[in-house]
Design a protein around this nucleic acid. Structure first.
Length: 483
RNA sequence: GGCCCCAUCGACUAACGGUUAGGUCACCAGCCUUUCACGCUGGCAGUAGGGGUUCGAAUCCCCUUGGGGUCACCA
């Protein structure tokens, strides 16, 4: 049997980080098994329609490097992949369940259901739709139903859950799960607006799209018995199930936007690299060996297995993600980092710099920051003359004789022909020997004058990149304006 | 509350009955050093509790406790 999996998000705005992981695991499983990764859009809630949400979702997936084999605009014969375009299909299948006695029409209004709910709550009972007391095909009889239907009153179709039956299914991650049918409500399958509920739509689609493995979040575990019942009602073989542990907030509740960013696009905007995010998220709840942290997507695919997925939820803690981002950033080619710096400059409205220049700036800073944005923020002096000078730094390293030394040093620096860091270093070393001073005594004042800051990349390298005349200009300017 | 799921350092995890319970992030100390980082070395820190089973339990079983999810004409 060929492996076919799907990621089936509801387009309600953005791609949730938990959704990213679900998509990723589906993707990894598909690729590992030479299978097919399907994207299906579950937009059966008209009330929650969000303009552009689907495009946004697809864009986020693409950014993360997760491309779908089948889905919107990529029909391989199982489409359409957008549920709102499949409405007739669900009606047709709901009808089949009516015919084979596994579902029934119901005409209760929202108010009537609410009333029944309150009544049961008053008696301290859990709410369950009582098919023998409500207005439906069972209490009304077929004749009455027929005329109601003809008169055009709104109706829903509900699943007729067997009275007393033990429902069992095997979850790849959790083992066997057993639930009594008493615990399962007569779920609405077809809503009064003619749209299906999730339960009907996902079962029908998974069957029609020949999905072999349903890999989804653990929040679906409690409703899986309903789905099993539906497969049985249709007389279909159910797919394999794997319910993923949840991603958690720091307080261990289900990851939500109340407690921080959860949208993939937010992480992108903050400057996280997609490879780092994917690597990090992959290792939340799954780990191939634990003796290594950094895995390229191809390696994730090679090692992936559903059996090794953890059962317990995983706290989403960005500390390790930040570290991972740094790891990826410092291993990025300079040309790539240069591009990222360029777009960061543009974002801040700073004048663009030549590509060749940025490629020299990149290696100086890429391994000392977590994000590219920090390069621009911390090393602003690489893009314009420093305006502020750290006073503490000045006090600490500027001595009585420093000014006089610098005047002479500038002359020495002017003599350097090939302004490379090695030559600069050599010249300064010579200068130090002549004046009988240590490197420490001169390098900090130089850093201060040229960068204004106490922290930065290697000073000789920094000088090389800035260039001889710029360095001299800055030193003269400092001396002239300061004293 | 009913039902379901879960439980190893602060966080992510490894150990598929036999290990001084390992690694990574974070934290602390040191080294490196022209600052800041990177890097390197070391340290702190965990099997929720109680019963079994077994020669032997983090690992298997039961109970307790704790946490989470879910109970819509939302997905």
């Amino acid at each position: 049997m060929s492996v076919r999996v799907r990621f089936a998000p509801s387009p309600t705005g953005y791609l949730h980080i938990g959704g990213l992981r679900t998509a990723l695991y589906n993707y990894l499983f598909a690729k590992k098994n030479n299978g097919t990764f399907v994207l299906r859009i579950e937009d059966t809630d008209k009330a929650r329609f969000v303009e552009g949400a689907m495009q946004n979702l697809i864009e986020s997936l693409r950014w993360a490097g997760i491309d779908y084999d089948e889905g919107p605009n990529k029909d391989a014969g199982f489409g359409p992949y957008i549920q709102s375009e499949r409405i007739d299909l669900y009606k047709e299948y709901a009808q089949k369940l009516i015919e084979n006695g596994n579902a029934y029409y119901a005409f209760d209004t929202q108010e009537e259901i609410e009333l029944a709910r309150q009544k049961q709550q008053a008696e301290k009972l859990d709410f369950k739709y009582n098919r023998n007391q409500m207005r439906n095909q069972i209490t009304l009889g077929n004749e009455e139903v027929k005329s109601l239907l003809e008169s055009g009153v709104p109706f829903v179709i509900r699943l007729k859950v067997p009275e007393d039956k033990t429902i069992r299914f095997k979850d790849i991650i959790r083992g066997e799960v057993v639930v009594g049918s008493k615990e399962v409500d007569d779920q609405v399958l077809l809503k009064s607006d003619g749209y299906p509920t999730y339960h009907l739509a996902n079962v029908v689609d998974d069957y029609l799209m020949k999905i072999s493995h349903v890999i989804r979040g653990e929040e679906w575990l409690p409703s899986t018995p309903k789905h099993i019942l539906l497969y049985e009602a249709f007389n279909w073989a159910p797919p394999h199930f794997a319910h993923l542990p949840l991603l958690l907030n720091k307080d261990k509740t289900k990851l939500s936007k109340r407690q921080g960013s959860v949208a993939v696009e937010d992480f992108r905007d903050k400057g996280y690299l997609s490879d780092a995010l994917v690597n990090f998220v992959a290792l939340l709840g799954w780990n191939p060996s634990a003796d290594r942290e950094i895995y390229a997507i191809q390696e994730l695919i090679e090692h992936f297995s559903l059996e090794k997925i953890n059962k317990a939820g995983a706290v989403f803690d960005v500390q390790k993600l930040d570290w991972m981002n740094q790891q990826y950033l410092k291993n990025l080619p300079n040309e790539t980092v240069a591009l990222l710096i360029a777009s960061e400059l543009e974002k801040l409205g700073i004048a663009p710099q030549p590509k060749s220049y940025l490629e020299k700036v990149a290696p100086l800073f890429k391994e000392r920051v977590l994000f590219v944005s920090e390069i621009v923020a911390n090393a602003d002096y690489m893009f314009s003359q420093p305006k502020d000078f750290e006073e503490e730094y000045f006090k600490k390293h500027w001595k009585e004789n420093t000014k006089e030394l610098i005047s002479q040093l500038i002359k020495a620096i002017e003599e350097i022909d090939d302004f490379f860091h090695s030559a600069i270093q050599e010249k300064i070393k010579q200068f130090n020997e002549e004046h009988n001073i240590k490197l420490k005594e001169i390098i900090h004042p130089i850093r201060l004058m040229i960068t204004g800051k106490s922290a930065g990349a290697g000073m000789f390298e920094t000088m090389e990149v800035l260039g001889k005349s710029e360095c001299i200009k800055r030193m003269n300017k400092f001396i002239n304006e300061r004293f």
